[in-house]
Design a protein around this nucleic acid. Structure first.
Lengths: 335, 335
DNA sequence: CATTGTATCGAATACGTTTTCGTAGATTTA
DNA sequence: TAAATCTACGAAAACGTATTCGATACAATG
């Protein structure tokens, strides 16, 4: 490992001078600065992040808090896309990312402790139980925090337009002539509330009455639960002509149920999903859905976080909504 | 931030003693050791990883080198599962992971440089161009390295049983009466070579002649390329009765082509995929495929890497094969 | 010529640990 | 009882860097 000292020797200057030259201080003559930089390249010098961190208290490391249970968020397509853009935007700005978990080795530690241990400069939080005491502890700590799809009042948040998306899908279906529209939604999180609200607004605006049994709860990303909910819906005395599903992936459960009953999509029943993941576009017929802008969600979250990290005092909490867009697909029939 | 010194003051001992007590040295009396540990808990002490690293040269940080281009490996289900198990196994052993990329901020750096900058203790490499000079530079560096699905001779590797998997699928199809079996494979990587080899072995063992046009190249994970290859296959004068696809996801392209021609799976044509990702099990009919054991692949890679990190001298390179298993599905018809 | 100002650099310290080595006191041994 | 051995602890140095502040040399100014 080659250090600042090696460079100083080779250049005949002090380590202090090397450090300054490398960091662009202006009390170094242009000539020596150039010399230092040149030999640094020659020797293939890399600053030691740990030493630097120890002095500056800046790790250039962003903590990422995703769901910690069983199947990690990594395997959800929606979140793996967000993670990917978080990672890329971080790297483009000179930051690495570290997954924050509570079990690191035999040591059980809190999220906050993990952050401290790794000296994260800030944290992006997504897809967790936002009421979890440990998450709250982190949010209320000294750490800059940005949340995705949830909003605390002391931290910036980046939000997918769930109300809008759901509203638009519901409107689209209604405007293609449907009057008996059902919604199968996920667990009652904030995101879900907004989707339900968007759905109801669209219905209300058109004077469409939705009986309570047309709104059912299932579990996000859980094929089996959605299949059951779909079966129940189809078993109603007066079944809907269109069903909105909690997400594209879980829709596959409903799809199986529909197909196995010998029904055709969209001739016998219209459907739509949510997310706009790849899956929607490669199945047949292509699934009408709402494409969430995962790329922007991740990038903006990181941008806002870095803003806060680098200007802890001036940066104020923002509530940002990222617009998605409809993917029309082929699963909503005009009637 | 509370340090070792705070504890030392509160306990009336020296910082050295605190450090030793916390690290289980045996030249500390049980009483003081207990006292130190107790107050450490009380004060909610967390060691500073940077300072520790600076002294010990051990970061407890594992570099993860996944594909760096465009769409990251994160969005491939196979690799996101591996990544997930790499992450979990690392954490269970007290390590965090860091993505190794070449663009960190404005600084372009090599993979090796990035590792050095972050003081990784070792690196897991998967899903990259293994002949890339920068990857080779890393492999031939001082760093402990473990590769997944590729093998260098100076590093341990963990390999999915591609030959075996392909062989087993091909045999299964043949043993259900098929004689005209086609293989659409991915780019010619080592993995692909093994799959082709497994396929040919199974055919040869049964004395089945495979004409060259029954073996076609497409691109992994590329729905469109596979769709085209499928179309070409179906256009043959003497089309196959069964097609093996490069992976479950890309199979969806072939599936669309088949369905749009009014053919039925498996009545008119039998198919199988590869990977065993969730998708295979939620489509209808369920896709016959080979489940790669992503969980073990990731975990063993990390175990072997840590072994090497902690015993740099005694640990010798191993070539490890992880067995998958067949998922029978419903897409191969008995004829 | 004396003074002030400017440009360039280096000595020293600190960040929070780990680890070597020394030492004071207690205990055992001869 | 003197010497040898243990036990328990602390002083100090080191890891690689950033940064303050003083020092030096020289130019400019009056």
């Amino acid at each position: 490992m080659i250090t600042i000292k090696d460079i100083s020797k080779k250049c005949g200057v002090s380590p202090a001078t090397v450090s300054k030259a490398l960091n662009g201080y202006d009390d170094i003559s242009p000539e020596t600065a150039a010399l230092v930089r040149r030999t640094a390249k020659e020797l293939n010098y890399m600053p030691n992040a740990a030493a630097r961190l120890l002095k500056t208290n800046r790790s250039h490391n962003i903590g990422v808090l995703f769901i910690d249970d069983s199947m990690s968020g990594l395997t959800h397509e929606y979140f793996s896309h967000i993670l990917n853009s978080v990672k890329e935007e971080s790297e483009e700005n000179g930051y690495d990312i570290t997954f924050i978990s509570k079990n690191i080795g035999k040591q059980k530690m809190s999220f906050l402790q993990h952050c401290r241990y790794r000296n994260c400069d800030g944290v992006v939080i997504a897809n967790v139980d936002f009421q979890n005491p440990e998450v709250l502890e982190l949010v209320n700590s000294e750490y800059p925090v940005v949340t995705i799809d949830f909003s605390y009042d002391n931290a910036s948040s980046v939000n997918s337009d769930n109300q809008e998306g759901s509203y638009t899908l519901a409107s689209y279906i209604a405007d293609r002539g449907h009057r008996k529209i059902a919604l199968i939604h996920g667990e009652r999180t904030l995101v879900t509330q907004k989707r339900i609200s968007g759905f109801k607004t669209a219905m209300a605006e058109r004077g469409i009455e939705i009986p309570p049994e047309y709104i059912a709860e299932a579990t996000y990303h859980d094929v089996e639960s959605v299949r059951k909910a779909t079966a129940a819906m189809l078993d109603l005395d007066d079944p809907p002509t269109a069903i909105m599903f909690p997400d594209d992936y879980a829709f596959m459960g409903g799809r199986t149920e529909i197909i196995e009953r010998g029904l055709n999509i969209p001739d016998d029943i219209s459907v739509c999903g949510y997310d706009g993941v790849n899956l929607a576009k490669i199945i047949d017929p292509k699934l009408t859905t709402w494409e969430q802008n995962t790329d922007q969600l991740g990038r903006i979250a990181v941008d806002k976080l870095i803003e806060k990290i680098e200007n802890p005092d001036t940066a104020i909490p923002e509530y940002i909504v990222v617009r998605g867009r409809m993917y029309k697909g082929e699963t909503v029939k005009q009637i």
